[in-house]
Simulated assay, not measured.
Amino acid sequence: MRSAHALAAGMLAALAAPASAETYLSVAAATDAYRTELAKSCSEVGSTLDVRPGFVREVDLNGDGVPDAILSTRYADCATAPAPFAFSGSSGEAARWVVSVPGGFETLEFVYQKVEIERSGGAPRITLSLPGGICGLGALDRCRHVIQLDGSRVVASAWSDGQARPEPTKATASPAASDPVPVMTADHNGSVMEIRDDRILYAEPKASLRGVVKPGTVLVEGKWTGDRFAGTAYAFKKGCPPASYAVSGAKVERPGQLDLVLRGAGPIRKGCEVVGYSDRSPHARLVFEKIMSE
């Protein structure tokens, strides 16, 4: 089962059912399991779980007449954490959908800004509001993705605001001389990165990434809260659109150096298609070592 750090990080699982959905006998059992996961993650940061009304939303998600549920972290927090810690962030709220299938219920993981469900007979039309970077728009924009479910499987989908574009890059890796944003550098798996306030981009990609990313390509964008960071990361594969997923983490002081460690359930691909998200993905842990100011 995923930790809450990863649940806050599983991005855009609406594109397909996760690689390994969990199965439960009832919505109540799935809800109890989710609360246990979130509580465990809160205990890891010395806190307790606070769940508010709205955490469970009963709704028929696949049109089979059996009540399903949306379990939303918008209504759950680590109440007494020593530093701000939330399961929802700038990329949206992490949610677990509990969907009826023959013999029980399966779970799906999503992250979105908002979800709207339109019932018109048969499977409901579900519209997800997502960060603009998913649709090739700006980081502060929003776009919509429309899906329908057959059991726990996504069987129909459409981008209301345009399909994702090939690469979320900035025009240049270096700002104008008048740019007031402080710049820091770090090493990431052999590539030199630049950390510019709310985004981390490739300054000098390593040789093995040639043809995949270029100087100026944004790897992570989001928001700082003290020494903690939460936002959207992009996984790159040659010839494929980038796969977005949410990450969060914090600066880590080590002897003689300062690092930034971000975690999030990374995308699993079949060809170019994202078929699920996993803590075991090679993209699930991003480490930026030896942070230095320029």
Results as ranks from 00 to 15, higher is better:
Ile126Val: 12
Gly132Arg: 04
Asp141Lys: 02
Ser129Ile: 03
Trp159Gly: 00
Gly121His: 07
Val155Pro: 03
Gly151Arg: 04
Gly122Arg: 11
Ala123Thr: 13
Gly138Trp: 15
Ile126His: 08
Val154Asp: 05
Val154His: 06
Ile126Arg: 08
Gly136Gln: 10
Gly138Thr: 15
Pro124Ile: 05
Gly132Ala: 04
Ser160Met: 14
Arg125Ile: 11
Val155Phe: 06
Val154Lys: 05
Asp150Thr: 12
Leu140Met: 13
Gln148Cys: 04
Ile126Gly: 11
Trp159Cys: 00
Gly133Gln: 13
Ala156Trp: 06
Gln148Thr: 10
Leu130Ser: 07
Leu149Lys: 02
Val155Met: 08
Pro124Lys: 01
Leu137Ala: 14
Leu140Tyr: 13
Pro124Thr: 09
Ile147His: 02
Val155Trp: 03
Asp161Met: 02
Ala158Asn: 07
Ala123Arg: 05
Arg153Lys: 14
Arg144Met: 03
Ser129Phe: 05
Ala156Gln: 10
Arg142Lys: 13
Val154Ala: 06
Val155Ser: 10
Gly133Thr: 15
Gly136Cys: 13
Asp161Trp: 06
Thr127Val: 15
Leu149Tyr: 06
Gly133Asn: 13
Ala156Cys: 01
Arg144Ile: 00
Val146Thr: 08
Ser160Val: 03
Leu149Gly: 02
Gly138Tyr: 15
Arg153Asp: 06
Arg142Glu: 04
Ile147Val: 15
Ala158Lys: 11
Gly132Ser: 05
Arg125Ala: 12
Ala139Glu: 14
Gly151Glu: 04
Val146Glu: 13
Ala156Tyr: 05
Pro124Asn: 04
Val146Cys: 04
Cys135Tyr: 11
Ser157Thr: 12
Leu137Ile: 02
Val155Tyr: 04
Ala123Cys: 10
Gly132Trp: 09
Pro131Tyr: 09
Arg142Ala: 03
Gly151Val: 00
Val146Lys: 05
Pro131Ile: 09
Ser129Val: 10
Arg142Pro: 00
Ser129Ala: 12
Leu128Lys: 03
Arg144Ala: 05
Leu128Met: 10
Gly122Tyr: 07
Val154Tyr: 05
Ile126Glu: 07
Cys143Tyr: 08
Gly122Gln: 05
Gln148Glu: 12
Arg125Asp: 09
Gly121Lys: 09
Arg125Tyr: 04
Gly136Asp: 06
Asp150Ala: 15
Ser160Leu: 15
His145Thr: 03
Leu149Asp: 02
Arg142His: 11
Arg153Pro: 00
Asp150Trp: 04
Cys143Gly: 01
Pro124Ser: 08
Pro131Met: 08
Cys135Gln: 08
Ala139Pro: 09
Val154Leu: 07
